[in-house]
């Protein structure tokens, strides 16, 4: 335990097999919980719209059904089309494993920092967009083109948020950042306020929710993500849908765990893990409810208003950074 107190605490744990096991279990938890979280948001949204909504298990049943269905691939598709679902799912899952879910200081967080996380999400998006263009249909190209525009403008805002947090913690390692926030408790930093606002806007854009994209739409000209996966079926479609749910979950966890890390376990004892699990469920439940409210209140905006929206996100993130530089660190 001495190693924890010295410099390389995060990495000293990488020889610990328990740590790796917990990390793997955490990855599995991501995979299992992601459809549930999506279903939760959907259900609240349905309630807000005076509908009863589907059961929480519905996404799971959908995935199972898709897995069992026949997979059809277009004549014009290349191997990229068939490899893409695996790369997209794998890339998103690897990115998710970098974000501490229940416990800090896992060996997986030392493998990659938050910039690598952004990189893996970008890799997944790259192949998603390529898959959209692969079959050679108009909708696929349209979806890919719009997705790349949105992500190109969202990524700098996301990285500005990351920089704000990283400069406060002097580290891009998510584990270190969360530990710092756990130690200092709830300090009202102006920089974090702006960073949270920026991250929320980015998260909505990146996960394709209203007002940027509508996950429930089947009107061809309004969709972005759905347009790219239009040609997929069967298990390919299941993986793509699952990856999208995973990404939603990832952003939600990033938001709650980095800025509100209360209750997160700092050791591997069962009690701490249990508390952490309950805390996470509560936090995600609240966040999911907020997301559903946002989706109910707002309408989808025109594509060419999206840059304005993302500029706002970038502005918030930059303000966060500047207020950190000006207010929080003196010369």
């Amino acid at each position: 335990m001495d190693a924890r107190d010295t410099g390389g605490a995060v990495m000293a744990d990488y020889v610990n097999p328990v740590g790796w096991l917990v990390a793997a279990a955490q990855g599995l938890l991501y995979v299992i919980a992601a459809p549930l979280f999506a279903a939760w948001v959907k259900r609240i949204k349905a309630r807000l719209q005076n509908r009863r909504g589907a059961a929480l298990m519905q996404p799971w049943l959908d995935l199972r059904k898709l897995m069992q269905k026949e997979t059809i691939v277009a004549h014009t598709a290349s191997p990229v089309f068939r490899a893409a679902p695996y790369i997209v799912f794998g890339g998103t899952l690897l990115a998710a494993m970098v974000v501490p879910l229940l416990v800090v200081k896992l060996p997986t967080t030392a493998i990659a920092d938050v910039i690598v996380l952004v990189g893996f999400l970008a890799l997944a998006r790259f192949f998603l967009a390529l898959a959209g263009m692969d079959v050679g249909t108009a909708f696929g190209g349209m979806g890919a083109s719009r997705e790349m525009l949105i992500s190109a403008m969202a990524e700098p805002a996301l990285l500005m948020v990351v920089f704000t947090v990283a400069m406060t913690a002097h580290s891009t390692n998510l584990s270190s950042v969360i530990e710092l926030n756990l130690q200092t408790g709830l300090v009202l930093r102006p920089s974090f306020m702006f960073a949270i606002l920026g991250l929320i806007l980015v998260a909505i854009a990146e996960t394709g929710r209203i007002p940027i994209d509508n996950p429930a739409t089947h009107l061809e000209l309004t969709m972005v993500h759905e347009a790219m996966i239009l040609e997929y079926s069967g298990r390919h479609l299941a993986l793509m849908e699952w990856a999208a749910q995973l990404k939603l979950m990832l952003y939600a966890v990033l938001l709650v765990n980095v800025f509100f890390p209360w209750g997160m376990a700092q050791s591997l004892s069962p009690m701490a893990l249990l508390i952490s699990f309950v805390a996470l469920c509560v936090k995600l439940g609240i966040l999911g409810g907020l997301l559903a409210i946002v989706e109910t209140v707002f309408t989808k905006m025109r594509l060419f208003r999206v840059p304005l929206y993302l500029n706002l996100a970038f502005l918030f993130a930059t303000l966060g950074l500047l207020s950190h530089v000006i207010l929080e660190t003196g010369p």
């Binding site: 410099g7 390389g8 995060v10 990495m11 890339g91 690897l94 030392a110 580290s171 891009t172 390692n173």
Partner: peptide
């Protein structure tokens, strides 16, 4: 330093 940032590309590839 290790606390600030680390990137283990070989392990990531293995993980993938």
């Amino acid at each position: 330093e290790a606390e600030a940032a680390s990137y283990a590309a070989p392990l990531l590839l293995v993980g993938m």
